[in-house]
Design a binder for these strands. Structure first.
Length: 453
DNA sequence: GTTCTAGAAC
DNA sequence: GTTCTAGAAC
């Protein structure tokens, strides 16, 4: 009970860095939202966010797209759902409201917000920038002039600190404003650009915003390229070229394309373990616990107990069904790595005890051995299938796999039989308590066991 | 693997 | 009315 409370407190204290921003360029006739959606404007934001999220998985932040018009937000939400893959939802949210009153109206604190401006760094044609310049008065004009004496460039981001004594800082918690000069297609305003050019610049604008956000939150002074180089034309072109050239995200590596097509769906969710084998060094410590040339040990993304890790051989092996007698050595090595992890975990919490083994019918591709503590106390344990997959015969201890390989030289299971086990009535794995009907009751029961231990 | 949701069970 | 399950979609 008390542990739960402490954890709750910890979560509340953790301050997630927020960035609030509007839908760039879709207001006031530049890109009316209907047209914007039609030509796929929102895709540029979503793409930029996706790349950013993949790059900075360990970074605790949230991106809040805020507009007064829910129609605008819907367009972005739909596109996000369409292409977000397995990215965490809470990191990108859309909120109807006023960007300057996120905290007072919606209790969402954003230390950074994005506001559109003109190349002269003056209030643009939209309401938000007028409000900002009104709120901060001449101080803002002076600061902008001092920091950015040259004309602003479309697609670039220009951060400015919000005075600590201003209402914006005091009551809304806004510490910096990232100004951007957004692409303009409106022929009645200066320098209108073509549709193709505008789309390209839109992506650049979103990239600049996210870059500035990243660098500001990591203590580096964000420097717009205009303050570094004089030859603006050259730098911009080079910048665009670099960005389009270094976009390997959509390409499929030869390694993964060699795989036979997935039997289950096409979304690729069952392939999520592969990148850990191919490039474990790419992942933060919060995901990859350990790796060497042969094995990777990761934290299960949805742990079903206080400690739940996966020990994975890096060599391509789909599942236990592919194992042969000559793989006995590999299985023993997996067991050894598992024992090593268990020792480590026990040092942290001596109360824990573990089992290590395999699911008879795994959902994810690539052989993986579960190392899981037997408390089964975790918010991610939600249903009967979760429970039965670790507490019935469906869970096969690594020693059992060893025995089967020694005796029979291969591991062949009756899939239907094991899948039926997942539907068994709930039963406590520790005591003979009368069978428990519902998961919430089981979870309470498990808490009791934990508190008694 | 999870999330979403309709409809059954309470 | 609310809780819970199970199946489809992703």
């Amino acid at each position: 009970m008390s542990l739960k409370f402490i954890n709750k407190l910890k979560n509340e204290q953790k301050r997630v860095v927020g960035l609030g921003f509007p839908s760039i360029s879709t207001n006031f006739g530049d890109f009316p939202i209907d047209i914007a959606a039609e030509i796929g404007c929102e895709i540029h934001l979503i793409k930029a966010i996706k790349e950013f999220l993949k790059l900075h998985k360990e970074f605790d932040f949230k991106l809040i797209l805020t507009e007064q018009d829910s129609k605008v937000l819907n367009v972005f939400e739909l596109k996000w759902k369409e292409i977000k893959d397995d990215l965490e939802d809470f990191k990108f949210q859309t909120k109807k409201g006023n960007l300057l009153q996120l905290k007072s109206d919606l209790r969402i604190e954003c230390r950074f917000i994005v506001v559109e401006t003109t190349w002269r760094m003056k209030p643009g044609t939209n309401q938000l920038s007028k409000q900002i310049f009104d709120a901060l008065g001449s101080k803002l004009h002076e600061e902008l002039k001092r920091l950015y004496p040259k004309p602003g460039i479309v697609g670039e981001a220009y951060p400015v600190k919000v005075p600590k004594d201003s209402d914006l800082h005091k009551s809304e918690g806004i510490e910096q404003i990232i100004f951007v000069v957004s692409p303009n297609m409106n022929p009645s305003r200066p320098d209108p650009v073509s549709l193709e050019k505008a789309k390209e610049l839109l992506k650049k604008t979103y990239d600049s915003i996210l870059n500035a956000f990243w660098e500001l939150t990591n203590g580096q002074e964000y420097r717009s390229i205009t303050t570094i180089k004089d030859n603006v034309q050259e730098v911009s072109a080079f910048d665009i070229l670099m960005k389009s050239a270094s976009k390997p995200s959509s390409k499929i590596s030869p390694e993964s394309s060699r795989r036979t097509p997935s039997k289950v769906g096409s979304g690729g969710w069952n392939n999520v373990l592969l990148p850990y084998c191919q490039k474990p060094e790419m992942f933060p410590k919060s995901e990859v616990y350990y790796y060497d040339n042969e094995f990777v040990i990761i934290f299960d993304k949805y742990p079903k107990a206080k400690n739940h890790l996966l020990v994975i051989p890096r060599k391509q092996i789909d599942n236990i069904g592919e194992l042969k007698k000559q793989n006995l050595e590999l299985v023993r090595a997996l067991k050894e790595k598992g024992q090593w992890v268990i020792e480590k975990m026990k040092q942290e919490n001596p109360k824990l005890f573990f089992r290590m083994g395999f699911h008879a019918v795994p959902s994810l591709r690539q052989l993986h051995m579960h190392v899981i503590s037997q408390d089964f106390i975790s918010p991610s344990l939600k249903n009967k299938k979760h429970w039965n997959s670790f507490t019935t015969e469906f869970f096969i201890d690594v020693e059992e796999i060893e025995r089967i390989l020694e005796k029979q030289g291969e591991v062949k299971f009756n899939k239907a039989y094991y899948e039926d086990l997942l539907k068994s009535p709930l039963k406590c794995h520790l005591c003979d308590a009368k069978s428990i009907k519902f998961i919430p009751d089981l979870k309470k029961h498990l808490e009791e066991h934990w508190n008694e231990s």
